[in-house]
Amino acid sequence: MNGSLEGLLPFLMYFATGLAAMVVFKVLYALLTPFDEWELVKKDFNTAAAISIGGALLGFTLALASAAEHSIAYTDFLIWAAVAMAAQLLTFTVVRFVLLPNIVSKIENNQIAGAVVLASINISVGVLNAACMSY
């Protein structure tokens, strides 16, 4: 039984850190957006905002999971988690200011098509991000 629980402490460290990283990502992502997606979802039942934040979180978490799986030590995981976060935040910035400059108004106006494109880009970059971490 003791051998079975040897990995429990590292699991708890990585899992707790992963959850904390997701919260930090959500906060930083919200700072990049001129609106609060959580509020749009909670108060206005804005489906576009839900799709948008869901895609951003999923994209980041895919990369975060790869960082956890491929890291050789806890500090390595922390470094690659930060790289994953930076890549996902940069993605939104490029989408917002270069590819789809009107994406903010589309999300605020609950336009599903824009949200699906944004979520798809975030998830795609997350998959690519995760694959590139398989060193």
Rank of each mutant, 00 (worst) to 15 (best):
E37R: 03
W38L: 15
W38Y: 14
W38F: 15
W38M: 13
E39H: 11
E39Q: 15
L40Q: 13
L40H: 12
L40K: 08
V41K: 04
V41Y: 04
D44R: 14
F45V: 04
F45Y: 12
N46A: 06
T47D: 08
T47N: 11
T47W: 12
A49T: 05
A50H: 04
I51R: 03
I51M: 11
S52R: 09
I53N: 11
I53S: 15
I53L: 12
G55T: 03
A56I: 09
A56F: 08
A56L: 08
A56W: 02
L57S: 07
L58A: 14
L58D: 00
L58T: 10
F60E: 04
T61C: 03
L62T: 07
A63R: 00
L64V: 02
A65S: 14
S66G: 10
A67Y: 02
A67K: 01
E69P: 06
E69M: 11
E69S: 13
S71L: 08
I72Y: 11
I72C: 05
I72A: 12
I72E: 14
A73F: 05
Y74L: 15
T75P: 09
D76M: 00
D76F: 02
L78P: 07
W80P: 01
W80T: 08
W80M: 13
A81V: 15
V83M: 01
A84F: 01
A86H: 03
A86F: 01
A87C: 12
L89K: 04
L90H: 02
L90Q: 10
